[in-house]
């Protein structure tokens, strides 16, 4: 079955990162900052990019990270990940715009930046960072995910109480009682 044909699933697109393929060239940063400049392409400034490559040539570490949510809190940054014998700090995989570092913070206004997957009309075939990444460290992939079932409406406290009264006194008696209570104290 083709993507999107199953009513119980939907197709989402996401950016897949292969850090073994990253060369650290930062073409993604350049393209992102140009695309999001106002007017479009009018300036180049990697500090405005919503993707940054964390790089450390001593450690052979090259990790493109994408701007996620803003958080006002400083991070404790207490995790160290060891992958294939190389140590990475928690920061290397975190896309938060946070006070601990100056990534994903608009350099002029100080406002947080967030990746919008280059949303535009008409839509791009793929986000700019993926388009310029010719080593396939960044690829745009489709993934089928199960649609969430619409959950049964949860009944509130009032509904539960009314049902109990109706069961005890009958529906008519409850309606009559309600009609006779216009002076009831309004909360």
């Amino acid at each position: 079955m083709k993507a999107g044909q199953n009513p119980k699933t939907k197709t989402i697109q996401e950016i897949k990162v292969d850090i073994d393929k990253c060369t650290g060239c930062r073409a993604c940063e350049m393209a992102c900052s140009a695309y999001h400049a106002q007017p479009r392409y009018s300036s180049i400034n990697p500090a405005r990019s919503r993707i940054r490559v964390i790089s450390d040539e001593l450690n052979d570490e090259y990790v493109p990270i994408r701007a996620g949510d803003y958080t006002p809190a400083e991070c404790t940054g207490r995790h160290i990940y060891t992958i294939n014998g190389k140590e990475y700090s928690e920061c290397s995989f975190c896309g938060a715009s946070c006070p601990s570092r100056d990534f994903f913070i608009e350099p002029d206004s100080g406002l947080p930046l967030k990746c919008d997957m280059c949303e535009s009309v008409p839509a791009l075939a793929e986000p700019m960072c993926v388009k310029v990444c010719m080593t396939d460290a960044l690829t745009y992939v489709e993934r089928e995910v199960v649609r969430e079932e619409i959950p049964q409406q949860k009944r509130g406290q009032i509904e539960v109480s009314l049902e109990a009264l109706i069961n005890q006194y009958g529906l008519e008696a409850v309606i009559d009682s309600l009609k006779q209570m216009p002076q009831a104290k309004n909360h």
């Binding site: 060369t23 650290g24 060239c25 930062r26 350049m30 090259y62 310029v132 010719m134 080593t135």
Partner: peptide, 17 residues
């Protein structure tokens, strides 16, 4: 070799690490 790397805004990877 750990990887090949490139320079700013260039898609080539001329350096062997």
């Amino acid at each position: 070799m750990d990887r090949q790397t490139g320079c700013y805004n260039c898609p080539k990877k001329c350096r062997n690490v």
